[in-house]
Every structure is written in structure tokens, then in C-alpha cells.
Simulated assay, not measured.
Amino acid sequence: MGDELLIDRDGVMLPDVSDAIAEALICAQVQRTPSKGGASGRRRFEIVDDVGKLLATVPID
């Protein structure tokens, strides 16, 4: 409910999934803002490989 997918077509190439998860957590901290009541749904980063295969999901709420 309320989920919206924003695709970063440029992305960031990292050597492995653990580095990608660490980068997602850092980005989540930088982007975190207090909720103003209008945002609903769960936010997360989906980490994919170069062909789009889902490798990990990192919740950022």
C-alpha cells in the first residue's frame, strides 16, 4: 500500500552485495527526513545486478 518505485538508471557499481548494502544504509541516513504525514508505504532500496536480478532489499524506514 502506497509503495512507489523510483529507478536509479545510473546506479553505483560496487564490488559485492555487502558493499552495496553498506552504501544503501549510508544513503538512507543522508535521505532520512521526519515524516510529514503525507508519506505512506514502506521505503527500501532494492539492490540488483547489472542485468536487473534482485540481490538484496534494504528497508530504510
Rank of each mutant, 00 (worst) to 15 (best):
P34S: 15
A24D: 04
D50E: 00
I7W: 07
E23I: 03
D61R: 08
A24F: 03
I7P: 02
A22C: 02
L25E: 13
T57P: 05
I26M: 13
A20Y: 09
F45S: 03
I26Q: 12
A20H: 10
R42Y: 01
S18G: 13
K53E: 07
D61T: 01
S18L: 09
V58C: 02
R44H: 08
I7R: 14
A24G: 02
D3E: 15
V48L: 03
P59S: 07
L14W: 07
A28G: 04
Q31S: 12
V48C: 02
V17A: 09
G41I: 14
L25C: 10
D19H: 09
D61N: 04
D49V: 02
A24C: 08
S18E: 14
K36E: 14
A39D: 09
D61E: 05
E4I: 15
D49C: 03
E4V: 15
V30Q: 12
S18T: 12
Q31N: 11
G38Q: 14
D8H: 09
R43P: 03
K53N: 06
V58E: 02
V12R: 08
K53G: 03
A24W: 02
T57H: 06
Q31G: 08
A24V: 01
I60V: 10
D16N: 14
M13I: 08
G52K: 00
G11E: 00
E46Q: 13
L54S: 06
V58R: 01
I21G: 02
T33E: 13
S18M: 12
I47C: 06
I7K: 14
V12S: 04
M1R: 05
A39P: 00
C27K: 10
V12Y: 00
M13P: 02
S35R: 12
V17F: 11
D8Q: 09
C27L: 11
T33G: 03
M1W: 07
